[in-house]
Every structure is written in structure tokens, then in C-alpha cells.
Design a protein around this nucleic acid. Sequence first.
DNA 1: AACACACGGTTTAGGAGATATACAGAAGTA
DNA 2: TACTTCTGTATATCTCCTAAACCGTGTGTT
Lengths: 310, 310
Amino acid sequence: MADEELPELPRGIALAWGVAANPQRGPKREMSVEKIVDAAVELAEADGIGAVSMAAVAAKLGFTPMSLYRYVSAKDDLLLLMQEQATGLPPEEHREHEGWRDRLRALFEAQTLIYLRHPWILSLPITGSPITPNSSAWIDAGLEALSPTPLSEIEKLAVTLAATGHARWYGMVTAGYAETSRATGLNPNEVALQEATLFDRVITVEEFPYLRAAIDAGVFTAPDDPFRFGLERLLDGVAMYIDRLEQGGERAPVREWIAVDPAELTGDKKHREAQKAVRDAEKALRDARKLERQVRRDAIARAARARGEA
Amino acid sequence: MADEELPELPRGIALAWGVAANPQRGPKREMSVEKIVDAAVELAEADGIGAVSMAAVAAKLGFTPMSLYRYVSAKDDLLLLMQEQATGLPPEEHREHEGWRDRLRALFEAQTLIYLRHPWILSLPITGSPITPNSSAWIDAGLEALSPTPLSEIEKLAVTLAATGHARWYGMVTAGYAETSRATGLNPNEVALQEATLFDRVITVEEFPYLRAAIDAGVFTAPDDPFRFGLERLLDGVAMYIDRLEQGGERAPVREWIAVDPAELTGDKKHREAQKAVRDAEKALRDARKLERQVRRDAIARAARARGEA
DNA sequence: AACACACGGTTTAGGAGATATACAGAAGTA
DNA sequence: TACTTCTGTATATCTCCTAAACCGTGTGTT
């Protein structure tokens, strides 16, 4: 009866919400979902998400791999629960801040910290919409921060989502370095420097003039954080919009989702051909550039050889 | 010699840049990297990234699995090349727009379209920093759009990154629906509706008052796109900042990257204990909430049963 | 022209990983 | 006590990735 109340809740999500029918009969349980998740998280912290296998988790707890399946119905569920545990609840401190802006910023920073601490979270596959207790709590906190503003509900959600996404993006870019650093044993600065060297090799003025200029200005080697700037501009924009509303200004039109041209999906022939033409043209351009690079490299090498022999 | 010029280029990246020493001896090649990547992409388009196995790709081309390794040094490389191919070059149309704002928006929309068309891209693991030709071209295009502005190089990069990240986030959220839709056979609207039902089940007024209010306002069922709003606010903020600069205003201070407290990484004991305390407290809260949910559910079920029996 | 050797595709094999299934023993229940 | 339910285990299958050895094919060299 009680089960019929929640028919389609995916297994993992149900577990996260604590919908676990505690069994009455049978032997005592020797493990618990929590212990399993803890062990899995420890493995991930130490050696990345790749180190998390059912066998490894079980071994860490001193059991056989199959025993885990009495607690977790599949590995995907375990991954979801790991994410949930590492994400945790939003910190209470953000409530101490006064305005919506400071609150949102505090949430943003808390979120980025989580990703910096647990970079493996970001390498988990996004399984649609993870409606878990903790992720809901983060969104709720964002909406709460914006609750004193005259924004509409969907606008509040939009701003919350934007800030969350920005934090996530921050994490992804940074976690890339962190993971490379862990995998190679180099410290992050060395990794950054090495990357910069690679950049120098392939980013030419002719092909990428603007990116080249940015590199020359040192944007990838400076210790400056481009993400804060982005967040502040976003918040500026929101503040401006709120001001406008408060002065009786018009609300921005809310557009619909970008729709994928159905022709592409149903396979309209002409359209497919057009797409193919674009792809072919891109390929031709790529090839031409590749050739150009190759030739240039050869020329340089030849010159070097000549210099060496001279 | 020429090889020594590019020593540390990771294999896959080197391939993407077309650094492929064409062999002279031996039998004619019957395949090519391009054909392999095409086949792999076709598999991914049809059945998701999970359908891409070396064996499947080889079979699609009529060869044995191992043959692929003469062209691609590992599966990861193949995945990188797939991403590169599906990303393509930024469309030229964005150059037709006048101001930086319209250009950036055009790039944003082009990028989101790519993710909507190839949602599997987003389920690829981010392998650090994919410095590939096409991804560089996208960044270059963003910087170009901003080149007439008085923004500094790092500020331009920050804005470009923010827009890119927002598009990616848009894609992730939307692709979740797309993948669920493909996997379950339901259309996206049905998926959204089903999700909404799940939301209704677990998001209570007591626990998530603000999220609950948003749901009641219909933010998840309306056909409105919260991401455009976010983008426009970001662009508003950038515009505002540019105005300020043009009127002789001060540049925003650029902060350094958020640093993870080294105590956490070196394992300071006190700090670890404090962290554990937080986690325990969170767990206690979670448990209390779980119990509360359970009890409430039981009560509801009991009431329903009583009603049924009455 | 003959030959050596680099190279392409194949075969075979190993190893890791998720998980289905069947089972023996433990704890409640009738 | 007998029955039922449940736990952890053992065994086995299936899917992947990829290392290594092999044979035939052209090209460059002698």
C-alpha cells in the first residue's frame, strides 16, 4: 500500500530519500548503505572515480563484491549516493549575509569549494535530473536568497540555475587541473605551465589571432580567476534587472526552449544533405589547416637540421 | 627531429591537430581515422555513448576490433576525436551580427544547438583541458566578438568562458531529458511531466518552502526557458561594466582562484575532526528527515487504508 | 631484381568489471 | 519446531579494453 504511493521513483533516488523498507526477518545486516557509500567516497577521494569498483568497495569493507547488491541495486545507485553524500547540505553561513547578492555569492563559493574538494563528483555522468534531497536543498537555498526580490518564480530559478551552473563549470575547468595533477604527480602550477607550453605550440597567430593575443597577455599563466568576474557580471545584470522592476520597468519576455529543428531528427533528406555539406566543408578546411601545419613544421625542422649541419 | 619539436603532446590531442606521420612502407591502409570517428559518432547519435565500443565501431566498418588500434591509440583518443568532430567549427553567421552582444548570443545559441543535437558529447569525461583545434576556434570566436570592447584580455576570456559554460550547463540539463526520453521511449514533455510528478512527491512545503513555491508556480512544467534569462542578465552585466569603463570608471579587481584550505589536503587532524563533525551532524539531520518522511508516509497510508475500509 | 623491414589487419588471450543465479546458514514467525 | 525471509557467498556469464604474436604486403635499399 505505502509502496503504491511512490510507484515510479527510480531505485537510486528512492534510496537517497531514505525510502528503504527495513526488513524484519533474516540475519542481522553487517553493513549499511552509509558505510558502503563512505568507503566508496574514500576510494574516490584517494584515487579518483576510476578506483571505485564494486569489488574494491567490498574489499575495503572486508566483504565479497556481491554482498553490496543487498544494499544498493546497481553501481549507478551507488554513484548517485556518493554524489549526494559529497554534495551535502548548503552551509548555514549563507543565511548570515544580508542581501540576496551576498547570499548567492556565498552559496557559489561554497559550491565551488565542494567541487575543489571532491573533483570526482564532476566526472559522474549526469543521469537526467537528480532530484535528491541535498541537491534540492541547494536549489531551495538559492531561491530563498532571492525571495525578497521582486523576481518572478521562474526568474528566481533562472538566476539560481545560472549561479549553480557557473560554479559547476568553475569546478570542471579547475578539476581538470586537479585530476591531471593527481594523475601525473605534478603540482597544479607545473600542470598549468605545461599546458601553457602546449598552447604555445599549437595556437598560432594566423589561425587563432584573438586567442593568441590572450595567451600573450598571460591569461593562462596569471594567478587570476576569470570565474569570479563572470559571476559578478551576472549578479550585476540581475541587480540591474531588479532595479528596473522596482522602478516599474517591464519584465523581460521569457522565451521558450530552443527547439531542435525536427527535420534533423526525422531525417529530412535535403536537410541531412545540407548538414553533410557543411561537415564536408569543415573537414576540407581542417585538412587544409593540418597540411599547412605539417608543412610549416617540416620547414622548421629542415631549417633546424640545416643549422645543425652548418 | 620533427617529433622532438612536440614532445609532450598527448596522443589524442596530437591526432586532433593532425600530427599524424604518414607511413611509407607496408600495405595500403583500408581505413582512416576519419572513417572510424564517423562510425563511432553515428553509433553515439543513434544509441548514446554507451553504444560506442571498439568492437561495435569495428563491426560497423567491417573489420576486427583490434584493427582500430592501428589508427587510434586508445578508446579515450577516439572519444576525444568524436567530441572534436561533433563540436565542429563555430558557424560563420555569428560574424554577420553587429555588436559584441549579438555575436556572443549567436555563439551561445550555436553551441546549445550542438549539445541538443549531440547530447552524448556532454557525457564524455572532461579530460583536463582539451586543447583541440575546434574548441580553440570557439574560444577564439568568443574573444573576437569581444575584441572591440575595452575589456582586458582576461576579462574577455572570463566573459567567453562564462557564456560557454552557460551553454554547456544548458546542454547538460536539457540533455538529461533528451537521454531519458531516448532511453524510455517517452517524448520530452512526458518525461518532464513525470519528473514533475516525482517532484511533487518528495518536495514538501516544510522541508523546501521556496522550491515548493516555485514548483507550485509551475516553473518546471511551463515551456519557458530559464537559461536565456540567465544569459541576458550576464550580458547586461557585461554591458554595464563596459559602459562604466568607457566613462572612465575603475576596472573590477581580479581575484585569485579560490584556494582549497591546505589543511584539508595535508590532513590536519583537528580540521579533519571538525569536518567529520559537520558530516555527522548533516547525517543526523538527514536521518531525522528520513524518519519524518517515513512516518508521514505511513500515516498517510494508514489513513488511506482506514478510508478504504470505512 | 632481391631482400629486409615497416606496416596493416587478424587471431588469440588475458584481465577487469558488473551482475544474474543458486545456495547455505541465520533470525524472526506461526 | 517448521516455515519463511533475508544475508553474505560462491560460481558463472557477459561485455569491454587491449597486449602480443603472426602473416602477408608493399616500399626503399642494395
